[in-house]
Design a protein around this nucleic acid. Sequence first.
DNA 1: GTCAGTCACATACTCCGAGTATGTCTCTGA
DNA 2: TCAGAGACATACTCGGAGTATGTGACTGAC
Lengths: 202, 202
Amino acid sequence: MPEVKSRRGEYTEATRRALLDAAADLFTERGFARTSLDDVAAVARVTKGAIYHHFSSKPGLFEALFEELERTENGAARAAFEAEEDPTVGALAALDQFLLACSEPVYGALVFREAPLALGWDAWRLCEEKYSYALLSDMLDAMTAAGRIPAHRGEALTSIAFGMLGAAGQLLARTRAEDRERVRGECRAPFVALLAGLAITE
Amino acid sequence: MPEVKSRRGEYTEATRRALLDAAADLFTERGFARTSLDDVAAVARVTKGAIYHHFSSKPGLFEALFEELERTENGAARAAFEAEEDPTVGALAALDQFLLACSEPVYGALVFREAPLALGWDAWRLCEEKYSYALLSDMLDAMTAAGRIPAHRGEALTSIAFGMLGAAGQLLARTRAEDRERVRGECRAPFVALLAGLAITE
DNA sequence: GTCAGTCACATACTCCGAGTATGTCTCTGA
DNA sequence: TCAGAGACATACTCGGAGTATGTGACTGAC
């Protein structure tokens, strides 16, 4: 039976949240490299000891943030994909959801701008294997199965399409709020064109 | 009249070269973040003082390397583009030249894998404004002028296509030598598809 | 009720590496 | 020949990540 968490447990969860929130703010504004752990601790009104109690390292803190963001945002994109019968339609729906998420100030900035700098390319890719990269791969598989994409595509298409997503995410993350809607539209075009081109390239 | 450089000048140019070569090796193998300037100096058989005499900082050293690489490799790609009459044919020729350059062990690893980590996204983009990014932009302009691409494209297409180049470059940089030729072929397909898709998307 | 043990941090430290300040030797030009 | 500058080497500072240790609060066993 799920007994209420002890008072102690509540408090520690509160500081963990405070640390994640502070890190999200600072990493988004100043960037990962230019924020020290002392800064994060100060904003969360604790000390560095608290950080190393809850997280393994500075990249570890970032990764926890990353996981949290991807779990919700990428889940929404996957839901948008799976809601559609046609994989191409679903992929474009997921793309729209993705572009929308990147328009929100934190997601794109952290997951596609800061993450490679904070974790390095390999670790980043490894993290993404569970989220955006996996979703992209699944969508391409579904489109292949539906005959919308040449059957014998290699790993390159997935990597390159993922690069497109990253570029779009970064672009939106640095776009002023008033221009984001227009830029989202412009970002959509290359993906549509790519799918159209793949459909006629056998 | 271009008098011979003094003995002094020859020596200093030699150490500068040794530093750049050592940095190229270490940055390629261990990565920018995991190599200290003392390491670079040791391989070049000098000390850190020599580095700061020739370069402004650690990113400054990297940037000098970057410029040197792009000057030659990107020049070849641009030449390949300009040698063709048809802009689409020229763009694909430049792409092939680019993919070939990224198959060589240093170029792709430094310019597309390490550079964003070493310089940060903004500074990297600023450096690339003179080279790959500029070439890409010029090629898209030429194709637009030739009616191969919708006229009112925004900045997004350039950014996203540049993201594709980066992804392809990184992929080739981490591909084993024996697989590179096959992967180059796979990398070509998405670009061809994109251009084909843009041509029919008005 | 108390006491051992553990959790959730705070405090105080180490260590590494980028950047700086300064010294030294050599070459050059007046 | 001597003043100056160029080309480094040496010795330092300093910031920040990571570590070791201390401490108070809570909890669970007896």
